[in-house]
């Protein structure tokens, strides 16, 4: 088995968004990420899937060092990324890069593509001939060298995202966190960006933490998939196993809800778990299993006890009372 390059253990990020009460002020917190553990293997694409507000981006921002965790650890090749020091080390910044969802706002509109690509080179690769390096980066992402003189507003959404990928490659990273890299793009453009990412991954042995809400896309790019709901992971499995044998009721609901194009795809959906109820506010997460308010299988215990993550099959773990050890034999 390939080595784990990144290990996230019991990661939490709680935001204080206000206070209750006048004298005994109690903080109102959002548990954006509430005990996430996962590992990323060298050269793999790990898909992190969930609906809006589930905490995916917060995991991403902690992974690249933009946020400090409330608790828990993130290790890169065994080294703790938040070991007391305030700032993340330059070396770790170089190793873990990110591509954001919105290609419009992630590139500085006042800088040319050349300047945008020059900045990370100046910091992380000062010894290199930077102009040559910029031309090389552009050719890696299949953009002509003249593009260095353009400004973001002159590029289409897809091209902006491709420049953001080139910028991430500039530091020669081992890991790229992809936060919904194609969800702002039209589907006819998406394929180009995805195939470029796959080619670059193979060429440079990159590991991707790929965040998305598109399960059909994950089916085609991820080696493993994890589902997040209200700050917690509820199921993880190898992609093939995940789509053949989804176990968590929420995973089944997600899969039942996606609109597909063909009968063959329809046949791959699990037993229909019809979507119902509202996604609870993250300020007011239901006690016990946070999915109980929408779960058709919820029982008394689900409202009181938060289930533990449990490995059902090698590599396939689920957080749900239906799969507790004493029951699964029944």
């Amino acid at each position: 088995m390939t080595e784990d390059i990144l290990t996230i253990t019991d990661l939490k990020k709680h935001f204080v968004i206000g206070h209750n009460g006048l004298i005994h002020r109690t903080p109102i917190t959002v548990k954006a990420v509430d005990g996430v553990s996962l590992s990323l293997r060298k050269g793999e694409t790990f898909g992190l899937v969930g609906e809006s507000g589930s905490g995916k981006s917060t995991v991403a921002y902690m992974t690249v060092g933009m946020y400090r965790p409330t608790s828990g650890t993130i290790r890169f090749r065994g080294e703790d990324l938040f070991d007391g020091s305030k700032e993340r080390s330059k070396r770790h910044k170089k190793e873990i890069q990110i591509v954001f969802q919105d290609p419009g706002s992630s590139l500085n509109p006042r800088r040319s593509i050349k300047d945008i690509l020059d900045l990370p080179l100046r910091i992380h690769q000062p010894q290199k001939n930077r102009l040559e390096e910029i031309v090389r980066l552009l050719s890696l992402v299949e953009l002509p060298p003249e593009y260095m003189y353009k400004y973001p507003r002159q590029l289409s959404g897809g091209e902006k995202q491709i420049v953001a990928i080139a910028r991430a490659l500039a530091t020669d990273p081992s890991i790229i966190v992809l936060d919904e890299p194609t969800s702002a793009l039209d589907v006819s453009i998406q394929g180009k960006v995805i195939n470029l990412l796959i080619r670059l991954q193979q060429e440079f042995e990159l590991s991707f933490l790929f965040i998305t809400h598109d399960l059909s896309l994950m089916r085609n790019v991820a080696s493993r998939v994890a589902i997040m709901y209200l700050g917690k992971i509820c199921e993880v499995a190898d992609a093939a196993e995940f789509f053949e044998n989804p176990l968590h009721p929420y995973t089944q609901m997600l899969l039942s809800s996606i609109p597909v194009l063909t009968e063959e795809e329809e046949a791959l959906k699990p037993v229909k778990v019809e979507s119902r109820g509202e996604i609870p506010s993250p300020v007011n997460v239901p006690p016990g299993c946070s999915f109980h308010s929408r779960c058709p299988y919820a029982e008394a215990i689900c409202k009181q006890v938060d289930p533990e993550m449990k490995e059902i099959r090698p590599g396939h773990t689920v957080r749900c009372h239906l799969f507790a050890s004493d029951r699964s034999q029944a």
Binding site: S156, G158, V187, S188, I189, Q190, G191, K192, I194, N195, D214, L215, S216, L217, R219, N220, V221, F243, I258, V260, L261, T262, E264, E265, L268, K269
Partner: peptide, 22 residues
């Protein structure tokens, strides 16, 4: 045809390259 092809499918098989240009 290009549009239908470009949509990732649950049946897998990779992501098509989509439609060139814009």
């Amino acid at each position: 045809q290009g549009l239908m092809d470009a949509v990732p499918k649950l049946t897998g098989g990779g992501v098509a390259h989509g439609i060139p240009g814009r």
